[in-house]
């Protein structure tokens, strides 16, 4: 345990984890699977944080990535260069580095304290604000860099004739993009977005590095206390991740079919 402790101490950068694992939260279990059952609420509360972080990051990624992709296709000059360079930097750096950078070197002061999110059927979920903000910022900007590529590809896949026909009817360039190119491109970006969704969901686990009490961090806090149940704990949270990815993939598959253009491939 000493080598591990040192490594994780370093990984956590000496930051107090703000996890709030009260000793009372963990009861002595009859079996190791019983240990999971007794602490399922605690872990699932972490899953709520995971989902919250995923949603926030994806939303931020969309808000920044969508205009960025549009600029890469239709923009010009320095703006496009800036967007492309930022994209290459964000896509070329590990999300782990981005997250610790956001946490320790955020350009804006991170909010402190924590908020309690009520969730039906679960104990109140404490979310450390500074870690959550840094994680959402890091995951969100990185996702923006990927989403911009999804939208860029989708925009470019719309035939140039569509733009020409729209202009020929008398629409302005902006009007043509808005009414003809975008609606088609957005539909085509659903599969890419599906990929991005699961990538962000899985990468929320790396917020462990900055001590955010999402599900993986909580699993760690549990199994260091009950070392005989380690395998059960990590398998359980893996299952939770798996179910979350399958569920979101199914939902997005449904959306893809629901909004497909009849007779066409989209």
């Amino acid at each position: 345990m000493t080598a591990l402790g040192a490594a994780l101490g370093a990984a956590l950068g000496g930051i107090e984890t703000a996890v709030g694992v009260g000793a009372g939260a963990i009861q002595a279990p009859p079996t190791d699977w019983g240990f999971i059952v007794e602490n399922a609420d605690y872990l699932l509360a972490g899953a709520v944080v995971t989902v919250l972080l995923t949603a926030t990051s994806l939303l931020l990624g969309f808000l920044a990535g969508f205009p960025a992709g549009t600029v890469e296709v239709y923009g010009g000059g320095w703006l496009r260069r800036v967007v492309r360079t930022a994209g290459v930097l964000l896509r070329g750096t590990p999300i782990l580095v981005i997250l610790v950078f956001a946490f320790f070197a955020a350009p804006v002061p991170l909010p402190s304290g924590s908020v309690t999110v009520p969730f039906p059927g679960l104990p109140p979920v404490d979310v450390g604000l500074s870690a959550f903000t840094a994680a959402a910022l890091g995951l969100g900007l990185r996702s923006a860099a990927y989403q911009s590529q999804i939208f860029r590809g989708a925009l470019q896949s719309v035939d140039a004739g569509q733009m020409e026909a729209a202009r020929a009817v008398g629409l302005s360039k902006l009007g043509a993009i808005r009414h003809v190119v975008l609606p088609q491109a957005l539909r085509r970006s659903i599969p890419g977005f599906q990929n991005e969704f699961t990538i962000v969901l899985k990468d929320t686990s790396i917020a462990f590095a900055i001590g955010l009490a999402e599900i993986l961090t909580r699993s760690y806090d549990l199994f260091v206390q009950q070392t005989t149940a380690t395998l059960e704990v990590v398998l359980f949270i893996s299952l939770v991740y798996f179910l979350l990815t399958v569920f979101t993939n199914r939902t997005l598959d449904y959306l893809d079919r629901r909004y497909a253009i009849p007779g066409g491939k989209g």
Partner: peptide, 25 residues
């Protein structure tokens, strides 16, 4: 499973092909 039976979408493939490099220089 449906998610992976899908072809790699064009956007992703384009991403792979684009071959990251910084603009200019």
């Amino acid at each position: 499973m449906s998610a992976s039976e899908r072809d790699q979408p064009a956007a992703r493939r384009a991403l792979g092909r684009a071959g990251e490099s910084l603009p200019g220089g």
